[in-house]
Design a protein around this nucleic acid. Sequence first.
DNA 1: CTTGACTCTCCCGTTACTGGAGGCCGTAAG
DNA 2: CTTACGGCCTCCAGTAACGGGAGAGTCAAG
Lengths: 270, 270
Amino acid sequence: MFTIGELSKLTQLPVKTLRFYHEQGLLVPSYVDPDTGYRYYDQRHVETARAIVYLRNLEFSLSDIGQILDSSRDEDLLAVLLRQQSIVKERIKGLRKAAKSLDQFIVEERKARNMASTANEVQEKVLTPCLVGGIRTRGRYSDCGPLFGRLGRSLGRHICGSAMMLHYDCEYREDDADFEACMPVRRTLEAAGIDVRELPGGRCVSLVHRGPYDQLGHSYAQVFKYINDHKYKALSPSREVYLKGPGMIFKGNPENYLTEIQILVETGDA
Amino acid sequence: MFTIGELSKLTQLPVKTLRFYHEQGLLVPSYVDPDTGYRYYDQRHVETARAIVYLRNLEFSLSDIGQILDSSRDEDLLAVLLRQQSIVKERIKGLRKAAKSLDQFIVEERKARNMASTANEVQEKVLTPCLVGGIRTRGRYSDCGPLFGRLGRSLGRHICGSAMMLHYDCEYREDDADFEACMPVRRTLEAAGIDVRELPGGRCVSLVHRGPYDQLGHSYAQVFKYINDHKYKALSPSREVYLKGPGMIFKGNPENYLTEIQILVETGDA
DNA sequence: CTTGACTCTCCCGTTACTGGAGGCCGTAAG
DNA sequence: CTTACGGCCTCCAGTAACGGGAGAGTCAAG
């Protein structure tokens, strides 16, 4: 005869859990002292407890375990096992999908982190041509939210990068700007009201702006100063790539928003 | 402005859940009528709700999601993502182990089911030699429980089949039987008090007995009748293989216990 | 004005436990 | 003899993320 504490040591199950299993009828002591309420167990309970642990490791619920343990008809057993197997496999499938998305999320985040390290430095690079879907419009920049919404819904899983905006105006305009919201896509596709085409590549001056959008002006100034200093010629449209901002999942801190300004240029030696 | 029901339709989230998210501070309506208590949401909430759904699919807890959604410092974000990734991967690992055990369990169960279909028919087959670890003793059959316990503990993961018993007596004895509890093992190994060796193979008469152990006698009679009818000579020891019985995980119904009687024989034409 | 759809709050139930309060019992030490 | 300690008991509350239902108030259309 074991007390509950002894059984606990033998089975590695906490006392609380053993009491709970008693309450649930899974592991009923062979004797309960009517005066003290002490539970007393014997050898058989050690084995049952181990069986319970085993079945819990197979992710069975306690009620399933109860049925398995005192099922007199074992015709059900195979059915129960198969059911459990499909439950477990479904769960694994779901988790794997989650893990995959997480991986991708982490990659994106790392990329943004990388970009952040070169923030506020003007750089030159060569852009490769890039397929995008875009919606061009005229109005205020702040109205671009719904445009990206439409792009997201229409292009869905074909999107393969960060949202961007093309500015067709040569100078800054507040009210009546001519701009195009774009999303890079994996392949050409048809979508109503969306212009899917290739953006040209070429030599480009780039700067990753870190901070809220209302301070983009300073960064633009830097870029244009660089272009002038090098006697390049800026080509329209200029591009803003929203590496990190609000609207994707969570708002974050505007101080950490990352926006890459890209301006294609013609150099003297071209 | 949306009512809660409209937001529910837009987000595919149950009304109950939206109320719960409000309570948790995850999705606080932009306006709550102080008289009626009605919640009113706007477009931003649709997006936040989608973000919540997305993060829930990544298996984040609601409190994590809360932190992510209003984290002003996103330095943490990568850390949170990595933590979540490891949590998810751990969980997948655990579930895969469970799935594997389940698969094996199902295979065993199917095998037993197969054996059951040929129950109570005498058959001849050829046994291949088989490595076992055994403990031989003298006494009552009912005392074999602890022997199997010792075998299980000592041989552990090397066990590769059903428990069996060898009967060295030529006739049935109750009190002072000479028998050996055995477990088939994958490879030779040393274990104190356990005799690991190869059981010989050869032609054998077999019968799968279905039912409680106290009715084994009838099945033995059938086997011996078959042996006599065919003028075979029974070789000692006879074997009992416990295909399905109590003691493994759960007790089941004695009417469905499966025990294979195997008796090696010499045939006239050998 | 009525009706039916919608919404509100409040409470309970789920799963498999875990933690804590408060109390009983027996033994050992001071 | 008192105190402390360890083991046991019961009962209550809390976890995560909702779901179900009661009972009451609200909205918009006919």
